[in-house]
Every structure is written in structure tokens, then in C-alpha cells.
């Protein structure tokens, strides 16, 4: 069995964190759990500590990418083989984690994809077009059929952990789109497993058209630039934190 670490990047998630942590604990009793408190101004850190899980307190908000990179470094420092990113807002079901980890047998990165056949998850308008185009482009880059490239629900195998501990992008959308480009171009195999998304326990995603339009543009700028960067190889020697 690989040593599995669940990383929960959390920014002001004190409201939804208890339910998520309780669920992770009951569904996955044998995995390591670390909450990366991304400069929250609420009780996120204290709530996580009250559950007895490890907490990394970032001194200020650095975004999901930076929080995850800290998580990957933590995984390397404490000899974890596999890192699974689970959002602290409760939209990812921890019971899907074993399926993601199992799929790592034939891959280095496994995405928990929301848009598989029979999924109830729906998005409309420009956001949908953006997600479709991103998926089509990344499918070509990776050589695998990917339907949901902006999912935050991901499992990374040992080679991906080594790569991401150093090269996980911290820019806007870097944690989803660009990280997949980096992984695919480093020769890592990226696949997906269908998962069911749930409503967020707190807060709602925005569906305003202009916001979706801006999202589309930024996503493509990020993708284009990521594709023109030079390839990064997986570091051969492990980097200690």
C-alpha cells in the first residue's frame, strides 16, 4: 500500500472544514491528512487543529497553487508516496479517494472528473465553452481523453509529487490547467476517473457572464503560455523541505 496524504488547501473555510475533516477521517482512517491554511482570517487553523490533523499555516494568502506546493513539499519531507488534493469546501467526496489512488497504478496524475457520462454536474454559457476547449486541448497534449481539466480533485503519484514539490505553478489557474501541462510534458501520464460533485457546503460559485468571459480569456492565456514554455523534467533526486 502506498502512503497516501490528503492535502486540503483551505482559505477561510472554518464553516465547512469540520464536516469535511470528519468525513475524511471516517472514510479514510489510514491516510495522512494535512490542512494548508492559506492565510485565513477566520478560525480555519484552530478548527483543523481541534481535529488533531497537521496544519501548515501560510503567513499570508498565496492561492491554491502555493498552498498545494507547500503540501507537496510536506509529502516529500514525510515520505508520502501519493498526494490527493481535496477541496476544503466539501464539494469533493472523500469516499472517491481510494478509486483515484487505485487508478495511479497506470498513471502519475489522476483527475477526479465531473463531466463524465451520466454525471449530474452541469455548467452553461462561456464557462462551459472554456472548460470544453481546455479539455480538448489538454487531451491532445496529454494523449488521454480528459473531460474535466479544471477539477481540483486530483491524485498525484510519486513522480508527480517530486515534480510538483518544485514546479507546481502558483499563478491563476496554474494549479489546474498549467500543472497538467507541466506534468504531461514532463512525460507523466495523466488520466481521469469519474466522480460526482456535491454542492458546496458554504458559498456559491459565480455564474455571471462577464466573469465567465474573463475566466475564459485568462484560462487560455495561461494555457497558451504554459504550452510555449520549455519542458521541465522530473527531478531525479528528492528535494527535502
Amino acid at each position: 500500500m502506498p502512503r497516501v496524504l490528503v492535502v486540503l488547501p483551505a482559505w477561510n473555510e472554518a464553516a465547512s472544514l469540520p464536516a469535511v475533516l470528519a468525513e475524511v477521517r471516517s472514510a479514510l482512517p489510514d491516510v495522512g491528512v494535512v490542512v494548508v491554511n492559506d492565510g485565513s482570517s477566520d478560525a480555519t487553523s484552530a478548527v483543523a487543529r481541534s481535529f488533531g490533523v497537521d496544519v501548515l499555516d501560510l503567513p499570508f494568502n498565496v492561492g491554491v497553487g502555493g498552498a498545494m506546493r507547500a503540501g507537496f513539499r510536506y509529502a516529500l519531507a514525510y515520505d508520502y508516496d501519493v498526494v490527493v488534493q481535496v477541496d476544503a469546501d466539501g464539494q469533493h467526496d472523500p469516499r472517491d479517494v481510494p478509486r483515484l489512488v487505485a487508478a495511479l497504478d497506470g498513471a502519475d496524475v489522476v483527475i477526479g472528473a465531473r463531466f463524465t457520462d451520466g454525471s449530474a454536474y452541469r455548467v452553461r454559457g462561456p464557462r462551459r465553452w472554456a472548460m470544453r476547449l481546455l479539455a480538448a486541448t489538454l487531451s491532445r497534449v496529454s494523449g488521454e481523453r480528459l473531460t474535466d481539466t479544471t477539477s481540483g480533485f486530483k491524485a498525484s503519484g510519486p513522480r508527480a509529487v517530486r515534480l510538483f514539490a518544485v514546479h507546481y505553478p502558483a499563478e491563476y489557474l496554474g494549479d489546474t490547467v498549467e500543472s497538467l501541462v507541466i506534468a504531461a510534458r514532463a512525460g507523466l501520464r495523466v488520466t481521469q476517473v469519474g466522480v460526482e460533485m456535491r454542492q458546496r457546503s458554504a458559498g456559491q460559485p459565480s455564474h455571471r457572464p462577464w466573469k465567465a468571459g474573463v475566466y475564459l480569456l485568462r484560462a487560455f492565456l495561461a494555457l497558451l503560455i504554459a504550452l510555449t514554455r520549455r519542458r521541465i523534467a522530473v527531478p531525479a533526486v528528492e528535494v527535502t523541505a
Binding site: 494548508v36 501548515l56 501560510l58 503567513p59 507547500a70 513539499r73 510536506y74 502558483a170 523541505a241
Partner: peptide, 16 residues
Amino acid sequence: EREVQTLAEEAALLRH
């Protein structure tokens, strides 16, 4: 910014 961010991550790990 990149350097500051890396330092923040290191600080969090060391603090832990």
C-alpha cells in the same frame, strides 16, 4: 513575488 511565496511555504513547513 515568487521568492516571497517560496519563503512563505518554507516558513509554514518550518513552523510545523
